[in-house]
Design a protein around this nucleic acid. Structure first.
Lengths: 225, 225
DNA sequence: TCCAAAACCTAACACTAGTTAGAAAATGGG
DNA sequence: CCCATTTTCTAACTAGTGTTAGGTTTTGGA
């Protein structure tokens, strides 16, 4: 019984992975059931035993992408100690977001390529999931703001859009084997928090001019991670 | 003679605009010559009098998008006085970039949707144009860095990718009639330069106020999300 | 008004798409 | 080994694709 189901599950996964790769390369309309079947080492008709339509497939691919990010960030935030500052949370969220979209890169890239062409009903569902994720960031930022860690003029809504835009774009240029995700996350967090001209020293040394602000320090554990 | 050519030019523009809208909504493969013809109030066959293939059309659309941004930013930079600081140049470039991608929104959105599915030769050409644009930003940033306006640890390559990612993403959420482009540009520049926690006042003087933050304990709200 | 050039349309061809019904093969407990 | 169940394949249908050849209409200077 369990074995029988396993066989089917394996095929499903193989088809799903293949679909993500093809959708990523050719978009929604550009993707052929025949191409997916080819990539998954199957005949086109066989896909329909596991997924009842092309829409069913793209829908599954889209969900995996956004869910991976949401879960990754949620887990990273929960793993932080209660003493974590807003800065700590932002850094952790950035790192988790980047890790996730790189990890399931085929799925997130497929989403970026295909989401705009997908039938309305499917897109609507996925957009709701993305909005939910956005609200997590809204809370992270407004929490840090309320702690007094941001300048008073900061526009949180715009900041969120700015940050998520930059993060989502990363899949376009990030190549495994080059810079590490941690490095990228650290630098992104530095820009977001201190800017390019920031007086707050990003990593280590802390001399020059009197400490501009208290909450600049971050738990070394997080940074090292 | 001039009138005759004008008629053709008008039709070309109408077809081009229609193509941009359809490509934006359905991507490259999802776009039908019949759909473009419909949008442009023409019969499908007539398009071929002006453009010799679907590839010819998408190619024109892609070029317009990136060229509008390059020209807009180039012009804005040249319009600055010699006394302009690195900060001035960055702000101006951000504003010009945003203005351009909003102005020709259909074309830039079409690019984002279709570029990944387009035939290799066409994409390669467009990618070269985009790299050229990227090098403009590289110069802006390295110029500001050499003037000593950035912290020494700033990673310019990552910063450029971060900034361009955030800017390019703007077309996804920016809706005319809401926030003004100037407001968005100002806030984006503030984040890039001073960060969210930046103590430096947007205008210029570096005057650090007393520590505004006494970490008041993590709000459980965030973690609960 | 006339008429060549420009602009557009009609109708079709060759091809590929998603999907399906039914046959064939693989699987695994008895 | 047997056979019911699960899984895969074969072969096809319908609909829609980019593109084109050739005819029709529109245009604007003489």
């Amino acid at each position: 019984m369990t074995k029988k189901l396993a066989k089917s599950a394996i095929s499903q996964k193989r088809i799903l992975d293949a679909a993500a790769r093809i959708f990523r390369d050719y978009g929604y309309a550009g993707t052929t059931m025949r191409a997916i079947a080819d990539e998954a080492d199957l005949k086109p008709g066989s896909i329909y035993y596991h997924y009842k339509s092309k829409d069913d497939l793209i829908s599954a691919v889209l969900d995996i992408g956004i869910r991976a990010v949401t879960d990754s960030v949620g887990k990273a935030l929960r793993a932080l100690p209660d003493t974590a500052t807003g800065r700590d949370r932002i850094e952790a969220a950035i790192r988790a977001h980047l890790s996730a979209i790189i990890e399931v890169g085929d799925y997130t890239l497929a989403t970026r390529r295909a989401l705009g062409q997908v039938p309305e009903a499917i897109r609507a569902r996925n957009t709701r999931m993305r909005d939910t994720y956005g609200s997590i960031w809204q809370e992270i930022l407004s929490d840090a703001h309320q702690r007094g860690e941001f300048r008073t003029t900061a526009n949180l809504k715009l900041a969120r859009l700015f940050i998520l835009g930059a993060l989502n774009w990363t899949v376009e240029w990030f190549k495994p084997g080059g810079r590490s995700i941690d490095d990228v996350a650290r630098e992104f967090a530095a820009i977001v928090l201190d800017g390019l001209s920031g007086r707050v020293e990003p990593v280590g040394l802390a001399e020059e001019l009197p400490p501009p602000a208290k909450p600049k320090r971050a738990s070394a554990r997080v940074r090292a991670a």
